[in-house]
């Protein structure tokens, strides 16, 4: 079953098997882009379905279309945000001299999105339950915003940790090669050891992909680029969700695939929050 294979691939990312130091040493992330993409789309559709349960319990014209709309829109939200932010990420990465190629970079980002959507999909049941039992539109908006933020945060945390691990390994490789050079030039036995970077032994404990590995960070600029990108990704994602709205479906108006341009995400969330009570 191709779906099961894709699920297994995602599971290995979640368990941290793809980001173990041994696995990272070979090259970039060893993941199948196609399979993770399939999982991202499927999990997004699953969450979209759970989200649109709210519109099924309401009775306004065309509310049954909301199911289709949400199932398309949730995966689209993530992929479109990626599409918008990826080119600049690549360009700035190349500018500060990182060793990521396009494919390696894409693998890293897609893996992070996979983590985010796994979390999102698993929270879907809770959203579906609240959608069935709640009549408050404002509450559902805030709950969904909160769940999207938690999932996104976890995905981006995964990205930063993986990057951190990669930079440690890069540093170790560099010192190893320097040590070898030094040995060749003047064979003194102690010199190489000063550069040794300690990584906590992994044999005893199983470490998840979010666990910290200690060590110095080498490529500071690359990390800065990623940090900035994370902020941009969050902002673009939030505004993209506003452009693609309605996701849940306002029970007081008709169904529409898109709403006219007005306001912005942050203003709307603030208003919803204060109007809730």
């Amino acid at each position: 079953m191709p779906i099961l294979n894709a699920l297994r691939e995602l599971d290995q990312i979640l368990r941290g098997e793809k980001t173990k130091p041994e696995a990272l040493q070979k090259a970039s992330l060893e993941i199948s882009l196609r399979q993770i993409l399939v999982m991202i789309i499927l999990l997004g559709m699953l969450y979209g379905l759970c989200m649109s349960v709210f519109s099924m319990t309401q009775d306004y014209p065309g509310h049954e279309f909301q199911i289709v709309a949400s199932m398309i829109k949730v995966p689209a939200l993530f992929l479109l945000t990626l599409l918008i932010t990826f080119p600049s990420l690549y360009v700035f990465n190349a500018l500060v001299g990182s060793r990521f190629g396009v494919v390696e970079l894409l693998r890293l980002i897609i893996a992070s999105l996979g983590v985010a959507l796994a979390m999102l999909g698993s929270l879907g049941l809770i959203v579906a339950f609240f959608s069935v039992s709640t009549t408050s539109y404002g509450f559902m908006i805030l709950l969904n915003v909160f769940i999207f933020s938690v999932s996104g945060f976890l995905g981006l945390k995964f990205l930063l940790q993986t990057l951190h691990r990669m930079s440690i390994l890069a540093a170790r490789e560099e010192t190893d090669s320097k040590a070898k050079q030094n040995e060749a030039e003047s064979p003194s036995p102690n010199e190489g050891q000063n550069f040794e970077i300690e990584i906590i032994p992994e044999s005893a404990k199983e470490t998840g992909p979010l666990a910290k590995l200690y060590g110095p960070i080498l490529s500071g600029e690359v990390k800065t680029v990623f940090r900035c990108w994370i902020v941009v990704f969050g902002l673009v994602g939030a505004q993209m969700s506003w452009v693609l709205r309605p996701f849940i479906g306002d029970p007081n108006s008709e169904f529409a695939w898109f709403r006219p341009r007005s306001s912005n995400f942050f203003e709307a969330v603030m208003n919803t929050f204060f109007n809730l009570f």
Binding site: M119, S122, K205, E206, G208
Partner: peptide, 19 residues
Amino acid sequence: FSISLPSFFVLNTLVGLRS
């Protein structure tokens, strides 16, 4: 219990406590 379990499972996996 069953509604809360899936997300708890994913969280546990992510922090490396699957085993």
